[in-house]
Simulated scan of single mutants.
Amino acid sequence: MCGRFALGIPRKRLQERFELAEVPQAPARYNIAPGQLVEAVVQTPERREMRLLKWGLIPSWAKDKSIGYKMINARAETVAEKPSFKTAMRRRRCLIPAQGFYEWHDENGHRQPWFITSRNPEDVLALAGIWEHYESQEGEIIESVAIITCQANELVSPLHDRMPVIVVPKDDARWLDPKQSDPAQVADILTSRPWPGMLAYRVSTRVNSPKNDDSGLIEMMSGQQDDVPEN
């Protein structure tokens, strides 16, 4: 499951990480939630570019756009087969920039949020995604996205059994290439693997509300510096 993430990294770092000609200016965001617009890197015939996509994939054939609220994630094991995802998996793969993502864990009878991120605060994570183009009968056009998840690794598994797929830079071009239409040729990118240099720590329950969106949400709770899982 990946249901909330943050992106508060300098824009220049995004441009460098994804080899983009330009990156539109945008405010830092620390509580990105389903249903909101998210930034995603896509490959066009001319170049890579950053687009705004609605989080919650709406298949092109959907009769009701509200189906997107149920489609925020796609499982790596079945994304190439599910009717809602298989066309996008072949033709419209993307990368979603992130600073880190949140996960909730039951602790002493309440849901405690954790933040999973890199030890280097300026590292850009690239979450594997698929996107779709939807047009309603009334002519409304929505471009939407789902984040692909896989089995959790040793860092995330104490918190949840799923985690977002993180694409390493050497796999960016292959993942984005729309000419690579056989899912089997990119299936290895979706496998669970260790994340060197990543860590997980508790954060404030203020993140529970999407109305809160400030850098304080990703700050480590005091008193746990010696109790932080890392990969």
Rank of each mutant, 00 (worst) to 15 (best):
F101A: 02
I116T: 11
D213R: 02
E143S: 08
D123C: 06
K86F: 05
A200E: 11
E135F: 00
I148N: 04
K65W: 09
G109H: 10
G129F: 01
P194Q: 07
H105Y: 02
A98L: 06
Q224M: 14
D64H: 08
D172F: 15
T78C: 08
I130K: 02
V207A: 04
N120L: 12
L127V: 08
R75S: 07
N31T: 06
W114P: 08
R206G: 07
A88V: 08
Y134A: 00
A126Y: 08
K54V: 03
A187F: 02
Y30F: 15
S118V: 10
C2G: 11
S60C: 08
L52Q: 13
E138F: 00
G129M: 02
L127I: 09
F115L: 06
V203M: 05
S136K: 01
L159N: 06
D172C: 01
P194H: 07
W131Q: 03
G100D: 07
D123P: 10
E122H: 14
P158Q: 11
P27V: 06
R92Y: 01
G100C: 05
P113Y: 09
P27C: 07
R13E: 14
E46V: 12
A28W: 05
M220V: 06
R13W: 05
T44S: 15
R193G: 07
R111W: 11
E81A: 12
P113R: 07
V228M: 04
T149F: 04
G109A: 07
D214L: 01
M163N: 10
T205D: 13
A173N: 13
I141P: 00
Y134F: 15
R174Q: 14
M71P: 08
I72N: 03
A200C: 14
L159V: 08
T117W: 13
T44N: 06
P210V: 12
E39D: 14
M1F: 09
E77D: 14
V165N: 03
G68V: 02
A88E: 05
V165Y: 06
A62S: 15
A74M: 01
R11G: 09
H105S: 15
P229Q: 13
K86E: 05
P183Q: 07
L125G: 09
I189V: 15
P10K: 09
I67N: 05
A152P: 02
V79K: 01
R11T: 12
D171S: 10
P158F: 11
W104N: 04
S215F: 09
C2S: 10
W61M: 07
E138M: 01
E19N: 13
R13P: 00
A62T: 04
M89L: 11
D213T: 06
D227H: 15
Q185K: 14
V186E: 00
N120V: 14
K86I: 04
Y69A: 13
R75L: 09
A126C: 04
Q224R: 10
K86N: 13
D161Q: 13
R29Y: 03
I166V: 15
F18W: 07
R29E: 10
N73Y: 09
N108W: 09
E49S: 11
E135N: 03
T205F: 01
E107F: 11
E19A: 14
K12E: 15
I32V: 14
L37I: 00
D227M: 11
V165E: 04
D182F: 01
